[in-house]
C-alpha cells in the first residue's frame, strides 16, 4: 500500500490510454507525456501499459507501507525520499515507512511516478487511465486526495537493477519558450493566408486554462475567409460542418485564443481545426506551463513520421539499457 499524505494539485493514475472508443466520443486520456511515462515503466521493469501516477506542477507526499522499486521521469520536479534528494530517470528502491515528496517545479510541468508492478485500479474499457471529466477510470475516477491508499499491482515483467540511470542524451530539457511541430490542416483553408502565416510567426502565450483537456493560447485575432454558411455549420466564421477532432488539433473559436485539444478533450465538433500537433510533440506539450510561450512550426508528414521513429529508437535503447543490466 501507498498512503497519500498530500495529493499535490492534480495527481492521477494514467497508463497508455483508453484507445478504441474515440468514435463514440470517449477520448483516450492516458499519460500526456507518453515518452517519459514509457521510460518510467522501463526503468522499473513494468509492462508497457502499466499504470503510473501523473503529477502536475506540484508533487504529492506519499508514504510507502511496503518496500518498492520506483522511477520518476518527466519534467524537473525534484524528488526526495525522507527529505533527501534522489535522482530522476533512475531506478530507485524505497523502503517500508519511507516518505516520497517533491520540491517546487524547476522545469517542465509534469512528472511520472512509475512503481514496479504498477498501480492496481480496476480496468475500464481496456485501460486504467483516469478521465476526470466523466469521473471514470483510475482511482475512483478522480485526482488523488489526502488519505487515499493505493495498492501496488502485478504488472512487473522483469527486475531492473537499482541505480540504473537513463543517460542525459535521452532526457528532454525544457525552457520557458517552446517550439511545437504541427501539420497544417484539416480546415486551415478557412484561415486567410495572412492569418495562416501569423499563426506560425507569433509566440503564443499559454493561459491559465491549460490542462489535460486542452491548452488555450493568447496572441492576436486570426481571420477567416469570407464564405456562405454551409449546411450543418454554425454561423460563426470559425465554424465548419462537424468533424472528428484529431488529438492535438488546434481550433480557434471566433478567431480568438487558439485551443490545442489534448488527451481528455472532446472528440469532435464544429470548429475549424487549423493545425494538428504531431504525435511525438504531444509529449513536449505536456511539459509546457501556464505563462510560457509556444511557437508552432509547420512540418510535413514525412518529418512527423521520422520524429516518431526517432522516439521509438530512443525507447528501444532505453529498453536495452534496462534489460541488459539485470
Amino acid at each position: 500500500m501507498i498512503k497519500v499524505l498530500e495529493p499535490g494539485i492534480e495527481t492521477t493514475v494514467q497508463d497508455k490510454g483508453r484507445e478504441g472508443y474515440y468514435e463514440i466520443g470517449m477520448p483516450p486520456s492516458g499519460a500526456m507525456d507518453r515518452y517519459s511515462y514509457l521510460a518510467g515503466n522501463l526503468l522499473v521493469g513494468n509492462e508497457e501499459n502499466a499504470s503510473s501516477l501523473e503529477i502536475t506542477y506540484m508533487g504529492p507526499k506519499l508514504q510507502f507501507e511496503e518496500d518498492a522499486v520506483i522511477a520518476i521521469t518527466g519534467g524537473e520536479i525534484p524528488p526526495k525520499i525522507n527529505d533527501e534528494p534522489v535522482p530522476m530517470w533512475t531506478t530507485l528502491t524505497i523502503k517500508k515507512g519511507d516518505i516520497l515528496s517533491f520540491d517546487f517545479v524547476k522545469s517542465g510541468a509534469r512528472v511520472y511516478l512509475a512503481i514496479a508492478g504498477g498501480i492496481d485500479v480496476p480496468v475500464l474499457q481496456g485501460s486504467r487511465s483516469t478521465y476526470t471529466l466523466c469521473q471514470i477510470g483510475g482511482f475512483e475516477g478522480r485526482a488523488l486526495k489526502a488519505g487515499d491508499e493505493l495498492k501496488i499491482g502485478e504488472m512487473q515483467e522483469t527486475s531492473v537493477k537499482e541505480g540504473t540511470a537513463i543517460p542525459d542524451e535521452f532526457i528532454p530539457a525544457y525552457k520557458k519558450s517552446h517550439e511545437i511541430r504541427v501539420i497544417i490542416g484539416l480546415c486551415s483553408y478557412r484561415l486567410t493566408e495572412e492569418s495562416k502565416q501569423r499563426f506560425l510567426d507569433l509566440e503564443w502565450k499559454v493561459t491559465p486554462e491549460a490542462n489535460r483537456v486542452g491548452y488555450r493560447f493568447k496572441g492576436e485575432r486570426l481571420n477567416f475567409v469570407e464564405r456562405e454558411q454551409p449546411f450543418g455549420a454554425g454561423s460563426n466564421p470559425s465554424n465548419v460542418t462537424d468533424l472528428g477532432y484529431p488529438i492535438g488539433s488546434i481550433q480557434v473559436p471566433d478567431g480568438i485564443e487558439p485551443i490545442a485539444l489534448l488527451n481528455d478533450a472532446v472528440t469532435g465538433g464544429g470548429y475549424a481545426t487549423i493545425a494538428t500537433v504531431i504525435s511525438t510533440d504531444l509529449s513536449h506539450m505536456a511539459q509546457i506551463k501556464t505563462n510560457e510561450t509556444v511557437k508552432f512550426k509547420a512540418v510535413d508528414l514525412d518529418e512527423a513520421l521520422e520524429a516518431r521513429k526517432e522516439v521509438r529508437r530512443k525507447l528501444d535503447k532505453i529498453r536495452e539499457l534496462t534489460t541488459g543490466q539485470k
Partner: peptide
C-alpha cells in the same frame, strides 16, 4: 514567499 504554481495570482 514563492508560488509553486503558475496561474492568476
Amino acid at each position: 514567499i514563492i508560488s509553486p504554481l503558475p496561474g492568476v495570482f
